[in-house]
């Protein structure tokens, strides 16, 4: 394309800008594909549910059905052993909520009439706070919970204490 209405420097500014954003975009998508850190996608094989629970589906593999409602999460305390892979499904019974785990790339809108999904592995023991990050009424600021990731031995102890 001949752009004789634009001088040399402007043409360079144009090429550099375009190059810059393309590099950024390729880097971001590259990481998403190579490292598997992706954003949630369209879920068609899981219908909205009305009970939240943690289900073990294999060794170190869990399914967390997380239900949001005004103004609490069900369950609001999740205990798992370190190294667990958790598939989170989330929906809401009433209004829109959000679900975000501190320090993890899990940030899901929790929408009535829709199911959102994320997969995450907890490789380090610790307490991971999760909070509601969408305004959902006057109790919004106190809507939170915690995922406790315990070292193997402690987890076994916890299981016995809770009769599981």
């Amino acid at each position: 394309m001949k752009w004789d209405f634009i001088d040399e420097y402007e043409a360079w500014a144009f090429k550099i800008s375009l190059g810059l954003v393309l590099v950024f975009f390729v880097a971001v998508i590259g990481i998403a594909v190579l490292k598997g850190i992706d954003v949630p996608t369209c879920v068609t094989d899981f219908k909205p549910f009305d009970k939240g629970e943690l289900v073990q589906i294999g060794p170190r593999e869990y399914q967390l059905k997380l239900l949001a409602r005004m103004w609490s999460f069900q369950p609001n305390e999740v205990v798992i052993p370190v190294g667990s892979k958790v598939t989170i499904y989330t929906t809401s019974l009433d209004v829109q909520h959000g679900f975000e785990i501190e320090g993890k790339a899990v940030n899901l809108m929790t929408i009535p009439g829709a199911v959102n999904k994320a997969e995450i592995v907890f490789n380090r023991p610790g307490e991971y706070r999760f909070v509601c990050n969408e305004f959902c009424g006057i109790g919004h600021q106190s809507m939170y919970g915690v995922i406790k990731v315990l070292p193997e031995a402690e987890y076994e102890k916890w299981k016995q204490e809770h009769g599981m």
Partner: peptide
């Protein structure tokens, strides 16, 4: 809406 359900990541 990157965090939304119901829209494919593509």
């Amino acid at each position: 809406q990157f965090s939304d359900p119901g829209i494919s990541s593509t």
